[in-house]
Design a protein around this nucleic acid. Structure first.
Lengths: 151, 151
DNA sequence: CTACAAGTTCAAGTCAACTTGAGGTCAAGC
DNA sequence: GCTTGACCTCAAGTTGACTTGAACTTGTAG
């Protein structure tokens, strides 16, 4: 079971050392202990970081992620909540697929003003399985979507 | 072509008026003009807001979104860039699907420590079509993922 | 005509997620 | 024994995306 120090974890994972310290501080990852001052990480942390990256991309906050994969590796949440998160994610996947198709459409369709193109409107309407504002006077724009973040 | 004032847009779209002002300020949406002091919005803005919500969920920043759907409604970017964004989105969809399956797995699998479960590791490995750190000493964790944000 | 709800501006505040900088520690190699 | 490089802590700064508050204006209803 290999032990890594922070520089190696940073290099292999692409996550900066400052971020790793921050993640440890908030309890999102754990280290085995110290050698002198230096944190020693189990190689497993790399998997955990993948999981974290994935979850961040899905729009989960660090706090939520911490809840999903408690410090020991075991989830902190009841099973039903996982199903709920998965379903939420499924909805998001549907939406992103629609957006992907819209981007492809924009790239290929010669019409300059896409909001008027029926194909485009159709794709937009299909997003969020119809909960979007396309229908007169009902629904909330982007309702059911996870606000997402990047940096 | 109906004209809406900010309160109606807010109500129908679920986007707070303060956010709508902010979006207008940064050029993400446009208003038709003013009636007295009050902004008048074309109903089309609702579609635009859906698009914005969708794009935010996909992890695009407001600046990127503004570039994709320039103030007039026409994109500001070359076609190739749209294909690139679509492909990026496609990769993300694959990753999120893996994450969704992982969440389902956690909800259903009785084993308490999922990082050791082969099924789970398999799912994790499949994310980002294998660019993740699962393989010894190569790759960056979550590489290729768009960091996502929420509030 | 007056009240009032709904709008307006502008500056400052907030929040999550980090990053940066200054100054300190330690183990290994020369 | 001394230097060097990789690590350390802790406080403060940054960024994006908004939100809040105070003080002001306006169209409509009574």
């Amino acid at each position: 079971m290999p032990i890594l120090d922070i520089g190696e974890v940073a290099q292999r994972s692409g996550v900066p050392a400052s971020t790793l310290r921050y993640y440890e501080e908030i309890g999102l990852i754990g280290s085995l202990g110290r050698r002198g001052l230096r944190r020693q990480f189990d190689a497993d942390v790399l998997l955990r970081l993948s999981l974290i990256g994935l979850s961040k991309a899905a729009g989960f906050s660090l706090v939520e992620i911490a809840g999903m994969f408690g410090q020991n590796g075991q989830p902190d949440l009841p099973r039903a909540q996982f199903h709920a998160k998965a379903d939420e994610l499924q909805r998001q996947i549907v939406d992103l697929s629609a957006l992907r198709d819209m981007l492809r459409h924009i790239a290929d369709c010669p019409a300059p003003t896409h909001l008027e193109c029926p194909t485009f409107r159709g794709l937009l309407k299909s997003a969020s399985q119809g909960t979007l504002v396309t229908h007169p006077s009902l629904g909330e724009a982007g309702r059911g979507l996870k606000p997402a973040r990047r940096r």
